[in-house]
């Protein structure tokens, strides 16, 4: 069963074609990377997957639910994290997690928060105001929020942006473990090519709103005759592919 099925998705603003006729699927238990330079259409695509943005044409099915008709049933089983969307800074970490635990109807919420605090090393930070935390601590809190409902589908926008190498590795390991334990699907937008190579089963390369190439990281590297995914990314972004 697919966690995400996207068919012929297009988003047109008044004078801009942000996403043009893209189709892809993400099976359960797999990790899909969404790569592209700034303005490639990644954010628009993720916004449509989350129901924040209505597509101009095309269809999105998330966890078996059509997002045009039944998005709340899907949203209850998904979660999302982005360093560009904050949690209320005046609330403590435990208050933030409590709010989202209620919104996602999490059973045994106190126990779940304690579990997440141990998993993300937040136990000592639970009473601290979210706005007073460092970038790395905020990212860990945002990830704890993203895991609070044990989602079947995770959408992560640059989950390790502005993290030190140790914390970044901790996050990547956590994602690998969660995928292995829960068979959850993960859609990952990232500019960290080493991270994408490590985590993703398949990669979609986007440019100017279109999917210009796709494959496993190994397939893409071989196809472009390069040593790593970063060089492939640069070839596609600069239009210098052979």
């Amino acid at each position: 069963m697919n966690a995400i099925t996207v068919r012929n998705l297009t988003k047109r603003y008044a004078h801009t074609l942000a996403v043009e006729d893209i189709s892809f699927t993400l099976p359960r238990g797999r990790v899909l990377g969404l790569l592209g330079g700034n303005g490639a259409g990644k954010t628009t695509t993720i916004a449509m997957l989350l129901g924040l943005l209505v597509p101009t044409t095309g269809s999105i099915t998330m966890l078996g639910h059509n997002m045009a008709r039944d998005r709340f049933a899907a949203l209850a089983r998904m979660n999302f994290s982005s360093p560009y969307i904050a949690l209320p800074g005046r609330l403590s970490v435990v208050e933030n997690l409590t709010v989202y635990g209620h919104l996602y109807n999490v059973p045994g919420l106190k126990h779940r928060i304690a579990e997440l605090a141990r998993q993300f090393d937040l136990t000592g930070l639970l009473k601290r105001q979210a706005g007073d935390l460092s970038a790395g601590q905020k990212t860990r809190v945002a990830l704890a929020k993203a895991f609070i409902n044990k989602p079947d589908l995770l959408l992560l926008d640059e989950p390790t942006a502005s993290l030190d190498p140790h914390t970044g590795d901790f996050v990547r390991t956590t994602l690998e473990q969660y995928r292995a334990q829960s068979n959850a699907a993960i859609l990952l937008a990232s500019h960290n090519m080493a991270e994408v190579e490590r985590l993703c089963d398949e990669v979609l390369m986007m440019k100017s709103g279109r999917i210009v190439d796709r494959g496993t990281p190994g397939e893409l590297i071989a196809r472009y005759g390069r040593d790593d995914l970063e060089q492939v990314f640069l070839d596609i972004a600069r239009g210098t592919a052979a």
Binding site: G51, L87, P88, G89, Y100, L103, Y104, N105, K145
Partner: peptide, 16 residues
Amino acid sequence: EEIWSRNLGHLFVSPL
């Protein structure tokens, strides 16, 4: 308050 705390994005992608 939700706009100022940049929290609306989280709220509108939750089941709320």
